[in-house]
Write a protein that binds this DNA or RNA. Structure first.
Lengths: 125, 125
DNA sequence: ATAAACTCCGTACATAAGTACGGGGTCAAT
DNA sequence: ATTGACCCCGTACTTATGTACGGAGTTTAT
C-alpha cells in the first residue's frame, strides 16, 4: 500500500493527474483509513498503468474508459481498434496532403527572385 | 460596405467568429458609423479570406498573425513553412508508428481463438 | 408605427487533459 | 513538540478555437 505521492512518482505522473482520473471516474477512489489519505494497492496501480499505456497508444480518456468497461470482449476491442485505425489513416492522409501544399509553398519561395513579394502571401491574398 | 452578418454569410463563418478574430487582434475593428454597427469593406474582407485560407492550410491563429505581420518578407515565410513542414512530417511519422501498433493489435484479435480473453487487453495489463 | 431581423457588448460555456492554488489536517523525524 | 514533508478538498486557471446567452439598441419591411 502506497500513498498517492509514491504512486505518482512510480508512474511518473503528477498527484493531480491521479486525482483527476479519479474525478473523471476512470479509477475508483481508493480506501482511505483514519488519516483520510488515499492508499493504493496493486489493483489500482496496474489499472493506472493500463490507462497510461492506452494513452500512449493515442486513445482518449473517454475511449480508455470504454476499453476498461468492455472487460474482455475481444470483438469489441477489435472493433474499437479498427475504428481508431481508420481515424489514424485519415489523419495521415490529411497531413500528407498538407505536406505537399506546404512543400510547394516553400519551393516557390526558394525559386522566387523578388524578395519583396512572396508568392505564398500572394497566393493567399 | 457590408454588415457583419452579410460578411459572415459570404465567408461561411459565424458572426461570433469574426468578433472573436477581432478580439484576438487578427483583424482591426472596422469603422462603426453612428449606428454603432461594424461596416466591412474589401480590405477587411480579403484579410479574413486570407485568414481562412491559411487556417485551411493548418496554420494556427497565432501563426497566421505572424504571417500577416511579416508582410512580404519571403525568406521569413519560407522559414515558417519549413518549420511547419518539420512538424507535419514528425506528426506523420508518429501516426505511422501508431498505425502499426494498432494494426498489430487488431490482427492479434482476429487471430485470437478464445473470445473471453483479449490479447490486446492482456498486453495492456 | 410596429414587428421582425439585425447588431451591440460582456460574459460564460464548450472540449481535452490536465495544472495551480490556498488554507487546512497529518505524518515522520529530530 | 516542532518542523518539514506530505496529503486533503474545492475551485480556478490553462490552451486553442470558437459558441451561446441575455438584455439592450438599430434598421428594415410591411
Amino acid at each position: 500500500m502506497k500513498t498517492i505521492g509514491k504512486l505518482a512518482k512510480e508512474l511518473n505522473i503528477s498527484i493531480e493527474t491521479i486525482r483527476f482520473y479519479e474525478r473523471q471516474g476512470l479509477i475508483e477512489q481508493p480506501l482511505k483509513p483514519e488519516s483520510g489519505y488515499r492508499m493504493y494497492g496493486d489493483a489500482l496501480t496496474s489499472q493506472l498503468k493500463f490507462i497510461l499505456k492506452a494513452k500512449a497508444l493515442g486513445f482518449t480518456l473517454k475511449e480508455i474508459e470504454s476499453l476498461m468497461s468492455l472487460s474482455d470482449s475481444c470483438a469489441d476491442i477489435e472493433s474499437m481498434g479498427l475504428q481508431k485505425l481508420n481515424l489514424i489513416r485519415n489523419k495521415i492522409a490529411d497531413l500528407q496532403r498538407l505536406e505537399k501544399v506546404i512543400q510547394d509553398m516553400t519551393d516557390s519561395c526558394k525559386a522566387n527572385q523578388d524578395p519583396q513579394s512572396c508568392p505564398v502571401i500572394n497566393s493567399l491574398k
